[in-house]
Each structure stands twice: as structure tokens, then as C-alpha cells.
Nucleic acid binder design. Structure first.
Length: 429
RNA sequence: CGGGGUGUAGCUCAGCCUGGUAGAGCGCCAGCUUUGGGAGCUGGAUGCCGGAGGUUCGAAUCCUCUCGCCCCGACCA
């Protein structure tokens, strides 16, 4: 993509409405624009990142055996009455009527809908287990949206739902999702700590919140340092992990049996990016989701649901990866892998080198953003640092005269002068 | 939903107290000079001063109502 023709409205000044780093940077880096409180338009740069994250989530769900489908954003009040939540949910649910005065709502979650789909279409225990998921926009009419996409009213969420014949099966599904979540966040360069909903271990209540560690996180978290060691390994030892102490501050209790001594207890801040829970037959019972068991008698299925805040993750990743100049994207979710900075557009030598590098990188399937604008060097450097692509390939008259370009690593800040060929080789072209 | 704040040019903001018909910096457009970390000079365009009502000869400014947005708290992927 050529920056001269890319829709990327960057901001030099800090928008007054934004308080936290990720919100300010998303606005400044031309990723989003607010259209109403807690509701955002995703501009091309932001949209690319959102899709990258979504794709990682999708791949890990698929790998864990979940199957993707797509449920609508608009739901009928009817099924919510069946589950009893229509009256229970409160003002967070956006309700309205259609032209026939039917009560409708913009879905804040999808337990009812998926349960309806399941009960209408699955009749035998032999079809179990099933884990179904979708990645869809949700709306929760939060009283006070804030922090940009971190707590918006409209947000993109991945929600999975598991259906099993019995508790043991449900637990297997839960474990599969637990595992998939750890892998998902790790691929994005995040350390996500699963927090028990109470200070007990995984065995009792099957529910965990996943918190990404970031200095600017909204909630305080306490966890056993052993977690860091376990999380660093490639193979995740679930049994070991499940006994570790890890809770949010409101649940912290130094007296808990598995709470480590102070020197083994880490205090950090976290952003909740995922929440998984087993809820048994709450919806299947209310909505009549039953299958024929092995002996022919109806069995009410055991369910669980598993959410990941996809759009929130964009903000969470920025909270974890930025400096005072801008964003520092982990490669896995970067909107482009490399940015080419032509320091003197119009200079024949510079243009040739840049065009050549652009063509070769593109041909190699590497996502590249070429800053071919007729701007001053300072402007280009500042924008490139702001949008935070992992690699910057800088070509200026001085270096080019000697056949050299500069390769800068946005994360480490390390710069290297080297030939175009070796720079391209370094980038995988 | 309680408490507080704010709305003026694309962005950040001044002007409001003490009414006299709209400003700065950045950005944008043109020209010249610059050219390895957000350039300099010159010229130019841009505003129903959030909206409605009121007071007044006259309202961005004072009064009333209303809407939007932000912050703190209680609540959430």
C-alpha cells in the first residue's frame, strides 16, 4: 500500500476526549473515529488490526475443535422471555420495536439464540459434544462508556458455546477452551493470566477471567510468580496451572490456602480480555434443549460459554505495546509488517530503491506500507513511529549513494545500515 | 444512575467575568526557500461560537430550556 493514497488521517495533537494511551494512540494513528459515545468507526488501519486479531482467535478456536457460524446482531425478545432474561437483563440491553410492534433487541450476548439453534437441530447424544462459536458485533448500553474501544457500547466479541452430555464432557470442553485461550493470547504477544472467579482452584467453580498484564490495566491482579515460568513454556501444563493462585484485587485474600508468601506473590495490573464459564443446564433447562441419551431417555445438555473481547484486544495490545512516540505492534497483529520510508521522494535514486524494495516485498507476500508522500523526513519518521509497524526500511540520499538503507526495529529501536539486498533478506523477501 | 466539567475553524485552545458583531498555534491550499527526526517566509480558504427560546439598540459573552461529549463514583467482554 502506498501511503500517498492510503486513507490514514493521523493526528499530531492529542484529542481532548481520550484519556488513556491506547485510546489516544488509536485516534492519533488514524485507526478509529468515534461516531457516538462508545461507538466507533474502524478506519482502514484499525480495521486491518482488528481482522488480524479476529483471525488468530478464529484459528485457535478451529484448532480446538470449535465450529464457526454467524448469528444475527438483532434478536427477538421471544427467546429471551423463554430464558427469563428479558426482564432480568436491565437497561444494558438495547430494546426496540419493529414496524409490526414486535419487540426486538440488539444482542448483548447469544446464549438464547445458540440454545434455540441447538435444540431445534440436535436430537441425539451421538452428535455431542459440540462447540459452536461466532465473531459478531454486540451492543451493551453501558451507562458510562470509556477508554475508547476498551469499554465501548458496540464491540466485537468472539463467543463460543459448548454442548455436552454430562459434566465430565462439559469439563473437557471447558479445558479445551481454556487451553485455546492461553494459546490465542500468547500468539498476540500477550501474557494473559487466567483468574479464578473465586480464590479457589479450577476444580470447584468452572469460571475464569483472562487478564492481560499491562501497567495501565484497569484492575489490580495478584498471582503466583510460578505462573510466569509455566506460561513461558510452549506446552501448557494445565494441571499445574489450575492450582496456582491468581485473582483480581477484590477477590484477593492472603489467607487463601494456595496464596503464596509475599515474595512469591506478584502484584500487577490487568485488562480483562476473556471470560469463560460453565453454567450447566441454566439455558438448556429453561429452553428445553434435550437430546436422546444412550438409553433413549431425554437428557438436558450441559453448556458453557466462552467470550473473547476482540475489539477490546486492540486497545489491550496497545496498552501493553507502546512508548511515548507511538504504538509498537507485535508482528502477529501488525497492520503491516514493514514500512518503507523514502526520505526524499522525487530523488531518482531514492525512488528507484524504494520502488524496487516495495515491489519485492509485495511479491514475497509481505505486507508493506510505502511512505511515498512528498513530506519532510521528520514528518515521515514521526508518522511511522506513531503507527508502529514492526520494521522500518529507511532510504535516504546519503545511504542510497553508497548502496545502503537503514533497517529499524520499532520494538528495540535498533537501527542497522545494510545493503538493500540484505535488508530485504532480513525481512524475508 | 448520582456528582463534576465542557461544547468557539479539521485539531488543540484563547475570547465569556466586565455585551459592540470572531482569534491564535498547528493542519489545509498556492508560491518561494528548505530537505536524515513533526521547517521558514509570503499570500489564501475555512466558523449558523452545539441547538431553541428569552433579555437588550446590540449576545460567543447575560438568563432559561435542551442536546452532545468528557471525567469521578457505582456496574461490565
Amino acid at each position: 500500500m502506498r501511503l500517498s493514497s492510503y486513507f490514514l488521517p493521523t493526528l499530531k495533537e492529542i484529542p481532548a476526549e481520550a484519556q488513556i494511551a491506547s485510546h489516544r494512540l488509536m485516534l492519533r494513528a488514524g485507526m478509529i473515529r468515534q461516531s457516538a459515545s462508545g461507538i466507533y468507526t474502524w478506519l482502514p488501519m484499525g480495521w486491518r488490526v482488528l481482522r488480524k486479531i479476529e483471525q488468530i482467535v478464529r484459528e485457535e478456536q478451529d484448532a480446538a475443535g470449535a465450529q464457526e457460524l454467524l448469528m444475527p446482531t438483532i434478536q427477538s425478545a421471544e427467546i429471551w422471555r423463554e430464558s427469563g432474561r428479558y426482564d432480568a437483563y436491565g437497561k444494558e440491553m438495547l430494546r426496540f420495536t419493529d414496524r409490526h410492534d414486535r419487540e426486538m433487541l440488539y444482542g448483548p450476548t447469544n446464549e438464547e439464540l445458540i440454545t434455540q439453534i441447538f435444540r431445534d437441530n440436535v436430537k441425539s447424544y451421538r452428535e455431542l459434544p459440540r462447540i459452536l462459536y461466532h465473531i459478531q458485533w454486540k451492543f451493551r448500553d453501558e451507562v458510562r462508556p470509556r477508554f475508547g474501544v476498551m469499554r465501548g457500547r458496540e464491540f466485537l466479541m468472539k463467543d463460543s458455546y459448548s454442548f455436552d452430555l454430562d459434566y465430565e464432557g462439559a469439563k473437557r470442553s471447558y479445558t479445551a477452551m481454556f487451553n485455546a485461550y492461553l494459546r490465542t493470547f500468547k500468539r498476540m504477544g500477550l501474557t494473559a493470566v487466567p483468574m479464578a472467579a473465586d480464590s479457589g482452584a479450577i476444580g470447584g467453580n468452572l469460571t475464569h477471567e483472562f487478564h492481560v498484564l499491562a501497567e495501565t490495566g484497569e484492575s489490580g491482579v495478584y498471582y503466583d510468580v510460578a505462573y510466569d515460568e509455566l506460561a513461558a513454556k510452549d506446552a501448557i501444563d494445565l494441571d499445574a496451572l489450575s492450582t496456582l493462585y491468581a485473582v483480581t484485587d477484590e477477590k484477593h485474600s492472603p489467607d487463601a490456602p494456595n496464596c503464596p508468601p509475599p515474595d512469591r506473590l506478584k502484584v500487577a495490573r490487568g485488562i480483562e480480555v476473556g471470560h469463560i464459564f460453565y453454567f450447566g443446564t441454566k439455558y438448556s433447562e429453561a429452553m428445553g434443549a434435550r437430546v436422546a441419551g444412550p438409553d433413549g431417555t431425554p437428557v438436558t445438555v450441559e453448556m458453557g460459554s466462552y467470550g473473547i473481547g476482540v475489539s477490546r484486544l486492540v486497545g489491550a495490545i496497545i496498552e501493553a505495546y507502546h512508548d511515548d512516540r507511538g504504538i509498537k505492534w507485535p508482528e502477529a497483529v501488525a497492520p503491516f509488517k514493514v514500512g518503507i520510508v523514502n526520505l526524499k521522494t522525487g530523488d531518482a535514486a531514492c525512488d528507484t530503491v524504494c520502488e524496487d524494495a516495495y515491489a519485492k516485498l509485495s511479491a514475497a507476500g509481505i505486507e508493506v506500507l510505502y511512505d511515498d508522500r512528498d513530506e519532510r523526513a521528520g514528518v515521515k519518521f514521526a508518522d511511522m513511529d506513531l503507527i508502529g509497524l514492526p520494521w522500518q526500511l529507511v532510504a535516504g540520499p546519503k545511504g542510497v549513494a553508497q548502496g545502503l538503507v537503514e533497517l529499524k526495529n520499532r520494538h528495540t529501536g535498533e537501527k542497522q545500515e545494510l545493503s538493500v539486498e540484505s535488508a530485504l533478506a532480513r525481512l524475508g523477501a
